[in-house]
């Protein structure tokens, strides 16, 4: 399998990257880790005339705290997230999710920015970002602005990014100390996208759910923030009836495709099962 010809660009700064992308318009695609885009190009399902490689831009790297937020450069790889003590301590769900993405080789090059920005409903990080209330730093020809992850996803491969814009960083508000979190992913094998997956972050106050947020992966043409499902749990002690209501609310917003992972009805049910399991684990973690 061989991709069609393209022009390769290697900007050294965010400004340069944005300028090149703006200049080339629709004919150009930014290249991050490339493990979604390059196979598509080899299958000739994608044929950008220009590739703008973001791999040499220093400002897109790194993990830092900024006030109550953790800010992660878009070109930070999944392997770097896994290896980060800061992430392990403050955002264990990010480490857990990273370990469930693809395989070791892919995680060395796959980036958080690429995972959240390309709009593939199969990617794992977007639902986690919805769950965490992350905000994306977007830079384009008109300057920098911020877009909430919960406003970012519009459809399969359709996002709030305008042509020429790139995600430069992901800002995640730190969940409260003592929160519990879990990402439960059902997949057929290592390297697979989720049949269904659920991200949960919750806090407990004397056994009662004080706050709860839920994200769902690959059960619609975009990642889902299951707001009603989470609301159904706040104020409860996660009793069977409450969980059942949450599952019903979560299932209600799914609209998965039927594919080799299973028919739509099955994948909807699996979203519910993953939610139940993520809730149980998050609850066990919460203090």
């Amino acid at each position: 399998m061989i991709p069609a010809a393209f022009e390769y660009h290697r900007p050294r700064s965010i400004a340069e990257a944005v300028a090149v992308l703006a200049d080339l318009g629709e004919a150009a695609r930014p290249l991050a880790g490339g493990h979604s885009l390059i196979p598509m190009m080899k299958l000739r399902l994608a044929g950008p005339e220009h590739l703008v490689d973001l791999g040499r831009i220093r400002d897109l790297k790194g993990i830092r705290t900024e006030g109550g937020d953790i800010v992660i450069g878009a070109m930070t790889t999944q392997q770097e997230l896994i290896a980060s003590d800061l992430i392990a301590a403050k955002l264990p769900i990010l480490r857990e999710t990273s370990l469930l993405i693809a395989d070791p080789q892919v995680r060395y090059v796959g980036t958080l920015g690429g995972n959240v920005a390309n709009g593939d409903p199969g990617n794992d990080m977007p639902a986690v970002m919805l769950c965490l209330g992350a905000v994306y730093h977007v830079v384009g020809p008109t300057g920098e602005h911020r877009v909430a992850a919960r406003d970012f996803y519009l459809g399969a491969y359709v996002t709030a990014l305008d042509p020429g814009e790139i995600v430069t960083a992901i800002r995640i508000p730190l969940p409260p100390t003592g929160h519990g979190s879990a990402y439960e992913k059902l997949k057929r094998k290592i390297g697979d996208y989720a049949t269904a997956a659920a991200a949960v972050v919750l806090t407990l106050d004397r056994g009662v759910v004080a706050t709860c947020s839920i994200g769902l992966t690959n059960v619609a043409d975009m990642p889902l923030w299951a707001e009603d499902a989470a609301l159904a749990l706040v104020g409860t002690n996660l009793d069977t009836a409450a969980v059942k209501r949450a599952v019903a609310a979560a299932e209600a917003i799914t609209a998965p495709a039927s594919d080799n992972r299973g028919p739509a009805a099955y994948r909807t049910k699996m979203a519910g099962v993953m939610l139940i399991r993520a809730l149980a684990r998050a609850r066990a973690q919460a203090k």
Binding site: L186, R188, T195, R261, G262, P263, Y266, K269, M270
Partner: peptide, 8 residues
Amino acid sequence: HDNWRTWT
């Protein structure tokens, strides 16, 4: 005997 067939 993949997941969805077994579940079904």
